[in-house]
Design a protein around this nucleic acid. Structure first.
Length: 952
RNA sequence: GCAGGGGUACCCGAGUCGGUCAAAGGGGCCGGACUUAAGCUCCGGUGCAAAGUGCUUCGCAGGUUCGAAUCCUGCCCCCUGCACCA
């Protein structure tokens, strides 16, 4: 067949769309399956990373449709954000125009791939009919006390001209543009996500996210249990509150350290001889870039502030320092320092000559006064507390006792600290959801009433390169409004929402995407999201940000009575990197742009090699999906992507592998065509082929169910084809069998290569449309199949060992090899085998009773055979040093063959022509060893299912 | 430093409740068949040795076992995330 991929693919894409094949509705009679990919930011054309993401999702959506599930598989666009705004500036247009142009482009790329989305549920977050509901939800959050406006030091990105949330700062750099962020004090909107810290953390245990994602989230939330301890400052009213996870070391406190930025520092040392040193340290820390700071901090540095703090449990006075290693934003920005049991404090104390006191021993009975030459950070019994109540207590008991003492003394309490901060939501940008708040001089800040939503972004704004700041702020008709409360003149909030807000609930909107009266209907979300999205696929880069925000939103909407879900995502799969070759210098350990292929290293001058690295614009090692689809078709590209590696694994782009996959499709096409021309001759091969279908299909379902798509494709696109080829080679020639086989096989091709599968389906006269077809057969393994398969496997094995032997035989046989004599197992060995299998199935203990049993058997009575009989028996039951007994290694089917007394010799003779051909000889003859001449002394090798083979 | 994941043949990559594992599958390479000719398709080979049973190999070094890619201990290396978090 001439395979015109584009013609076939676009034809079926149209047919599927016309038939509404992928439109999903709530149907309680079927199990649901919600398959979702992280929706894209529409930046223009679809890239290979997208192709991988969606090909995985589409394969799973189609697979689950085949399995009879009611599948929801939607697509939309995360279309608010900076790039559109920047593009608009560049071309002097409006982000809305840019966005819609990009959406049209990526959508048409997706359609060309044939992804089975329910396009009726399309959404774009920058459309009013979406962000209207962002605002509605914002009011809900506000009502629930989860919205807060406060002055706070925030991360500011000069380049993006906006603040960033903590999650969006990586190594002190902006996650989007990479510029270093600076700190600013600003009034900002926050969502109080920390209200949900515990639930967000605790429920990680119960969701099936990959371990690394779970670890990152745990890490990010960073809960630590400990105590808050107040250290009064001597001769002052001031109190230093410190957080510690180790209250059991409180008697080892020999100084207290404040972060240089701590407000108490100034208060304590102003006007004293120590002020100058502190100012210097503070300024130095403030001045340092991230890079310097990391290097600097290897050296713990501090200054004495001239005052002392009082340990509330023993009244001891200890010096107060400011230290460069204390983080202002964690805990209280003050640390009780225990050099004996904290390495950082130890280093610091050593440097400044501060006492290092042991208050824990490693194990009971150790010398409480043994000198410490390193900080012992483990748990052990308390010593030297100066109070008998504590000495001897260890671990949690010790902590509890200290906390209780603090609480009764009124100078501290047990507490929990989190690394997680509230979500800084506001952005000083145009292209985002306007925060529905109004600033009124008389009433203060007033929310826009729900009835007046949506607050729309004005379209009459011109963007230009030289403009800075947020155009909303200078848009009079947007800004000027009246107060909903007093009716007086008021101004709108001009900050917009972080775009991560948009993606925090879109998966719920998809359940009810056209609802124009509420964000979504509760019934719809409860149906589709029961147990969470069944399969969520996307990149690891959202492990913390998006996935955490989405979990937070799902919990809040649940608490607001909008659904009963709680956790948004059931199974999460993070697809691996897509790599492609790029020039690489091994000496400099650096990668270069593809333009430098074959050149010398621009740094050191060595010849550049190549290395597979992440596809990306910066190196130019990208591959255009459009071009590949144009050349080979969408099915080939999908096959390559899905067969190249399992979803989570990284994969390398390879042109030759892509071509190989294209050839594979051609082979499958040829197989389909050859099937149409078969005759009507039944043979035992027919049973074999259909048994293979059942076995393969069962294995395929298992693999696909756990998203091991690569294993699934190996079966559907490779194993099945080899089985078909084997059937033909063996002389299979039955049209009915072929049809049955194809009707079973073609649906297995559909998840990966849906278009060509649909084409096949119609050419063999499959029922209805394959896209909506449902596999009903169950593939329970039957004993009959096992036997049929084992018989054929026996021949395959015979040929395979025959081939190996032929090569050896050639060295010994003078003339050209022309024939093969096969001596099969003598009857008595078969008898022993049957006996052993029988005994084994009765859980007979061969170790203790094996020999006695053998001696009771008839074969054993022939004296001159005893040696061989014994040896055979051992081979069957016990095996040798490195090989287990055959009864343990034979498959179920092989045992069946032996028990049913397969006549190996006649099985071989019936297939002698085929075997002869496979072994490259003109004749093959078989007989049981002992019933003919012992050719070449091969009788001794004859064993059940392993005949002795002689080449002549 | 902490946490998570890895190290398998020329390459990619399965395999880890111990034996059926010299180790699936694909790519590449080699050989054969078909063909006027193939870069097409099909078949076979691809650690060493060998008329079959043997040897060496799954990051390194030990250990458990009749038997280890698989289990245990220690070490080395790579990737990813967090990072003076008290």
């Amino acid at each position: 067949m001439v395979y015109d991929a584009e013609e076939v693919e676009t034809r079926w894409q149209k047919a599927w769309a016309d038939a509404g094949a992928f439109e999903a509705e709530i149907d309680h009679s079927k199990p649901k399956f919600y398959c979702l990919e992280m929706f894209p930011y529409p930046s223009g054309n679809m890239h290979m990373g997208h192709v991988r993401n969606y090909s995985i999702g589409d394969a799973m959506a189609r697979f689950h449709r085949l399995m009879g599930k009611n599948v929801l598989y939607p697509m939309g666009y995360d279309s608010f954000g900076m790039p559109a705004e920047n593009a608009a500036k560049k071309e002097g247009g409006h982000p809305h125009t840019v966005t819609h142009r990009n959406i049209a482009s990526i959508r048409s790329d997706q359609e060309r791939m044939g992804y089975s989305y329910d396009w009726r549920r399309f959404l774009a977050t920058s459309d009013v009919d979406y962000y209207h509901w962002n605002q509605e939800i914002f009011l809900m959050l506000n009502n629930r006390g989860l919205v807060e406006r406060r002055l706070a030091p925030v991360n500011w990105c000069v380049d993006c001209d906006t603040v960033l949330a903590n999650e969006q700062v990586k190594n002190n750099r902006c996650w989007r543009c990479g510029l270093e962020v600076v700190q600013r004090d600003m009034a900002q909107w926050f969502l109080r996500m920390t209200e949900y810290s515990d639930e967000l953390l605790d429920e990680i245990e119960n969701i099936s996210f990959p371990e690394n994602v779970k670890a990152m989230q745990r890490n990010w939330i960073g809960r630590s249990f400990g105590a808050h301890i107040d250290f009064p400052v001597a001769d002052s009213d001031a109190v230093i509150g410190a957080f510690t996870t180790r209250p059991d070391t409180i008697f080892g406190v020999t100084f207290v350290t404040l972060s240089p930025e701590h407000p108490l520092c100034e208060e304590l040392c102003t006007g004293t001889e120590w002020e100058a040193d502190w100012r210097e340290l503070r300024d130095e820390c403030a001045r340092m870039s991230e890079f310097e700071r990391i290097n600097m901090l290897k050296e713990k540095k501090g200054v004495f502030l001239g005052r002392h703090a009082i340990n509330p449990l023993n009244g001891e006075k200890v010096p107060i320092y400011a230290g460069n290693f204390v983080v202002a934003s964690y805990g209280t920005g003050a640390v009780m320092a225990v050099p004996g049991h904290d390495q950082r404090d130890y280093d610091f104390a050593e440097r400044y000559g501060i006492e290092i006191r042991r208050v824990l021993v490693e194990k009971e009975g150790d010398d409480p006064n043994a000198e410490l030459n390193y900080a012992f950070e483990g748990y052990g019994p308390m010593v030297n507390s100066g109070a008998d109540d504590f000495d001897g207590l260890a671990g949690q008991d010790a902590k509890d006792a200290v906390i209780a003492a603090l609480e009764s003394a009124g100078s501290g309490h047990g507490t929990v600290e989190y690394r997680l901060k509230d979500w800084l939501l506001s952005r000083q940008r145009f292209w985002g959801t306007p925060i529905p708040m109004i600033h009124c001089k008389t009433c203060g800040i007033v929310p826009v009433p729900s009835s007046e939503l949506p607050v729309e972004l004005p379209l009459d704004v011109t963007f230009s390169e030289d403009q800075s700041g947020n155009p909303l702020a200078s848009h009079d008709s947007f800004v000027n409004t009246s107060c909903p409360s007093c009716g007086g003149l008021a101004k709108r909030e001009t900050d917009t929402m972080d775009t991560f807000y948009d993606s925090s609930w879109y998966f719920m909107r998809f359940c009810d995407a056209s609802n124009d009266s509420t964000p979504f209907d509760r019934e719809a979300v409860d149906y589709w999201m029961d147990g969470g999205v069944d399969l969520y696929i996307g990149g690891i880069e959202h492990a913390v940000m998006h996935l955490l925000y989405a979990r937070f939103f799902t919990k809040v909407t649940r608490d607001a009575g909008m659904n009963t879900v709680g956790e948004p995502f059931g199974t999460l799969v993070c697809q691996g990197m897509l790599n492609a070759p790029a020039p690489f210098c091994s000496d400099c350990n650096a990668e270069f742009h593809v333009d430098l292929f074959g050149c010398d290293c621009p740094t050191c001058g060595e010849k550049l090699g190549t290395r597979s690295v992440k596809m990306g614009k910066s190196l130019g090692n990208t591959v255009s999906p459009g071009e590949m689809v144009g050349r080979y078709g969408a099915d080939t590209v999908r096959l390559f992507i899905l067969f190249g590696a399992n979803p989570e694994a990284g994969m390398d782009w390879s042109d030759s592998a892509l071509e190989a996959n294209h050839r594979q499709l051609h082979s499958i096409i040829d197989a389909m065509e050859s099937a149409m021309t078969l005759g009507e001759t039944p043979s035992p091969l027919d049973d074999w082929l259909l048994a293979r279908l059942r076995v393969n299909r069962a294995a395929w379902k298992d693999s696909m169910s756990i998203v091991s798509i690569r294993e699934g494709v190996m079966i559907s696109h490779y194993e099945m084809l080899s089985d078909w080829a084997w059937y033909i080679r063996r002389g299979g020639n039955n049209r009915d069998t072929a049809r049955q086989f194809l009707l079973g096989w073609i649906p297995m091709l559909a998840p990966t290569t849906p278009h060509i599968a649909e084409e096949f389906w119609h050419s063999v006269g499959g029922k209805g449309m394959l896209a909506t077809y449902c596999l009903e057969e169950s593939d329970d393994s039957s004993e009959e199949d096992a036997g049929v398969l084992a018989r054929e496997a026996y021949l395959k094995e015979l040929i395979s060992s025959g081939r190996a032997l032929r090569e050896l035989a050639e060295r010994y046989v003078e003339e050209e090899i022309t024939s093969v004599i096969i001596q099969t197992s003598p009857a008595w060995k078969e008898q022993l085998a049957r006996e052993a299998i029988q005994l084994d199935s009765e859980t007979f203990d061969f170790k203790t009773g094996g020999m006695d049993h053998l001696k009771s058997m008839d074969v054993f009575s022939v004296e001159q055979m005893r040696g061989e009989v014994m040896q055979t028996w051992m081979e069957l039951t016990m095996g040798s040093k490195k090989k287990r007994g055959r009864i343990h290694t034979w498959s179920q089917g092989e045992k069946q063959l032996i028990m049913s007394a397969i006549d190996e010799a006649s099985t071989i003779n019936m297939n002698s022509e085929f075997i002869a051909q496979a072994l490259g000889v003109t004749s093959v003859e078989a007989y049981p060893a002992g019933e003919g001449e012992d050719v070449a002394g091969k009788a001794k090798f004859a064993f059940p299912l392993e005949p002795g083979i002689a080449f002549l």
